[in-house]
Amino acid sequence: MDMLTEVAPSARSERTRAATASQASAAAEGQAGGEFLTFRLGGEEYGIDILRVQEIRSYEPPTRIANAPSFIKGVVNLRGVIVPIIDLRLKLGCDNAEYNGFTVVIVLNVRGRVVGAVVDSVSDVLELNREQIKPAPELSSSIEAHYITGIGAVKNGDAERMLILVDIEALMSSADMGLMDSIAH
């Protein structure tokens, strides 16, 4: 009997590890579905992998950094960690970037680095299955479409809600961001 009680917990933890690994590998596949945090940039709705989101905070003006690109708003001190703040509206070419009561910062953990992304508002968390995700459209090479992993289509009554699914890790790791130079790709 003692041997059974010793084996059962380790078998249970092994099953838990296997289930967690299976979920992680499914989430890593771009088209496998999963949970997405949805947010608005201008008139469009976007979605990012919820596993990259650390927290959501109200927007506070960051400390500017000299000679930084316009989309890098500056840095904030988040519980002792200096976090660069990227305005995704400016980075992705939205018409305007107005700061109001709905403007929020999505704090992300990308390749072990904490980064803040300014968006117009956060909508909700949606679970999308494989059938709800359509392939990203093929666009001319002048458009940075390689950050788009797909288009999520969600039925909402008679209307269909379209989400642009973004590979936030690839976007934040891009060379023009200059944030991930010291981290191996």
Rank of each mutant, 00 (worst) to 15 (best):
L126R: 12
S10F: 05
L139Q: 11
R17G: 00
N96K: 09
A159H: 10
L171G: 08
L165G: 02
R12K: 12
A97Y: 00
V53M: 00
A19V: 08
S22L: 07
P61Y: 01
L128M: 03
S173L: 13
I56V: 13
G178I: 00
L37P: 06
G80D: 03
V75M: 14
E14I: 01
E131P: 01
E44V: 08
E144N: 15
D181H: 07
N129F: 07
Q31L: 10
V104L: 07
D124A: 06
F71M: 04
P135L: 00
L90R: 07
A8W: 11
S140T: 14
T103H: 02
I151L: 13
V110F: 02
K73D: 12
D158Q: 09
A145V: 14
G150R: 04
G178H: 11
Q54K: 09
R17V: 05
R161Y: 00
K73R: 15
T149W: 05
Q132H: 01
D181V: 09
L163T: 05
N156K: 15
T38Y: 02
D124E: 06
M180G: 01
V125R: 06
E55N: 05
L37V: 10
L37F: 02
A26C: 13
F36M: 05
I56M: 07
L92I: 08
S22E: 06
A11F: 11
V105G: 01
A153P: 00
A66V: 12
E144V: 10
N77E: 01
Q23E: 12
R130Q: 09
V118D: 09
V122K: 03
Q54D: 04
L90K: 10
E144Q: 15
R12E: 15
G178D: 04
E6W: 07
A8Q: 15
E131N: 10
E160Y: 13
L171I: 11
S141A: 13
L126H: 07
G101Y: 08
V81K: 11
G34W: 00
Y99L: 08
R12I: 12
F102D: 12
K73Q: 15
Y99M: 10
I143H: 09
V110R: 08
S10D: 06
I148G: 02
S13W: 09
K73A: 11
V7I: 15
R79A: 09
I133K: 05
H185K: 10
T5K: 12
K134Q: 08
D95E: 12
A27H: 05
D181R: 10
V110G: 00
M162L: 14
G43N: 15
S182C: 08
V76I: 14
A68S: 12
K134L: 03
R113D: 01
M1H: 15
L51T: 06
E6F: 15
E45R: 02
V76W: 08
F36R: 04
M177N: 06
E14D: 03
M177S: 13
L126C: 08
